[in-house]
Structure formats: C-alpha cells, structure tokens
C-alpha cells in the first residue's frame, strides 16, 4: 500500500467521485483540444461559424497543404528554425547547468551564498529587453540564430541549475570519494560517474526546457525578428492577421504546432512524473 492510497481510503465513494472527475476533465480540458482538431479540418465557411460541431466535410489535406504553402513555406522554415534552436540550446543548458549544479552542491565555499543568489536572481529578475538587444548588437549577434540560442541558454540556466543542484544532493558523496580514490579527476568524475546518474533529472530538464524553448514566443519576438527567421510561435502570430477570416487554417497551424509537445508528452510522460517524483521521494 502506498502513501497515496493511505491518504484517501474511502473505497465506497470513489466511483461517484471518479465519474464526476472524469466528466469535468472532459469538459474543461479535452473539449478545447477537440475544438482545435475539429476546426482545423473544417472548410472555410463552417470554420468561420466558430461553433463546436462535426465538420460537414473533412478538409484535412487541403488545409494542411494551404498552411504549409502559405507565405513561401514559412511554416517549414519555422519548424527547421525551431528545431535547431531547441536542440542546440537545450543541449547547452543541460551540460552547463549540470556542471554548475554539481559543483555548487558539492563544494562548500564562502562564495556559495553569492552564487546561489545569482542563480536565483536569474529565475526572478525579468530580463531587460532593450539593453540585451544593445549587448547583442555590440557582439554582432542581434538577429542571428546563434544570438538567440545563447539567449535561451542564459535565461534557462537558472532553472536547470536549481533542479540539478537539488538532485545532486541525493547522490551519496561516498560515490565521489570512491571515484577520486580510484584516480578520477574532476572531468572524469563528473562526466563518467555523476552525469550518468543524473539521467532521470536530465530527462525532466530536457523535456521541460525543450517544451519551453519550442513554445517560447517572447525571446524570438525581440531578439530574432524578421520573416525568414521566424520560429513556429511567431508564424502563429504572423498568420493571425492573415487568417482572421480563415479560422480553419489558423487552427490547422495551432494543431501542427501542438504536435511536437504532444509527442514529447506521450513519449516522456512517465519519465517526467517519475523524475520529479523520485527527486522528491529520495529527498
């Protein structure tokens, strides 16, 4: 019997409660997504009604092609841009943040409170937009993918460091000591011994941050303007004005953009929950 089962031990009530919960979840959480899918496959006239109804005719392929072809295949370019941005910046974040989190948790020095403060302020302080653009311009990185990748890494580091630091605390120090006695240097100790043990929290960080970066709207809006550089979130935004009379295409776009997170979720749901839960349980 798990802890959770002990919390609510009322077998008699759970059928009614379950039915209510499932019904409520369908109304509140499922219907909006069904609405997206239904509107995405409607024809133009019916989609303009904005109602929740079964499509008269399914235009999945037509709508799909129309969205893809819009504005010289902007959506395709955007998907490529977003993929590059997400993969590179999340990889960078994970490696760099794991290194910091590890040393920060293990090494006791009088600088620790200061470093913790800096890390925490990265989570709290909203980035100053125009001065960042100013710095990027000075580095010749404004309006470049490299610049945006570095920006995403910089803004995402704090969150990752905190997760890694908390998780490293659960790894027994004796392991480090054993590795050091066996002759491992700092790099070897970290990459060969510690890093593999961080697997579950790495999965959490990767999933959470790649969804964040993929869904990020503000940073591309500010730091990578221009149609050729658009990321998927910006296409949605750019299409909004163009598609006001073509809701079917707007929702097809939303649907396409929702698929990558959905795949992530279906594939990694268990690891996210397990990762976060195991961190909390082991303490």
């Amino acid at each position: 019997m798990s802890t959770a089962e002990l919390v609510n031990h009322r077998p008699g009530r759970s059928y009614l409660l379950s039915a209510v919960a499932i019904l409520a979840s369908i109304v509140v959480f499922v219907v909006p997504f069904v609405f997206i899918v239904l509107t995405a496959v409607k024809d133009r006239q019916q989609a303009a009604l904005l109602d929740f109804s079964w499509p008269h005719q399914f235009q999945f392929v037509e709508n799909f092609v129309a969205v893809i072809e819009a504005r010289d295949y902007m959506l395709v370019i955007a998907f490529i841009n977003s993929t590059v941005l997400t993969v590179v910046s999340v990889t960078g974040m994970v490696v760099l943040a794991a290194m910091v989190g590890f040393v920060l948790q293990r090494r006791r020095s009088r600088w620790n409170p200061f470093i913790n403060f800096i890390v925490l302020s990265g989570l709290i302080i909203p980035p100053a937009v125009v001065p960042t653009i100013w710095v990027l311009q000075g580095l010749q990185l404004f309006r470049t993918m490299t610049g945006l990748i570095l920006i995403e890494i910089a803004f995402g580091l704090s969150f990752c460091i905190l997760l890694f630091r908390a998780f490293v605390a659960t790894i027994p120090r004796e392991l480090d000591e054993a590795a050091v006695i066996d002759g491992a240097g700092p790099l070897r100790l970290f990459f060969r011994v510690i890093f593999p043990l961080l697997r579950s929290v790495i999965v959490t960080v990767v999933v959470v941050q790649s969804v964040n970066v993929f869904n990020d709207f503000v940073n591309p809006l500010y730091f990578l303007p221009g149609d050729q550089n658009a990321t998927v979130q910006l296409t949605l935004f750019n299409f909004q004005s163009q598609f006001t009379t073509q809701y079917n295409l707007l929702f097809m776009n939303i649907l396409l953009i929702t698929i990558p997170p959905l795949v992530m979720f279906l594939f990694f749901n268990r690891q996210i929950v397990a990762g976060m839960t195991s961190g909390a349980v082991k303490g």
């Binding site: 802890t3 959770a4 089962e5 609510n8 009322r10 499932i22």
Partner: peptide, 8 residues
C-alpha cells in the same frame, strides 16, 4: 484527488 484511489 489524483493521489487518491480514483478510477482513470
């Protein structure tokens, strides 16, 4: 609710 013995 979601840690209780609920169906689904």
């Amino acid at each position: 609710l979601l840690t209780s013995q609920i169906i689904g």
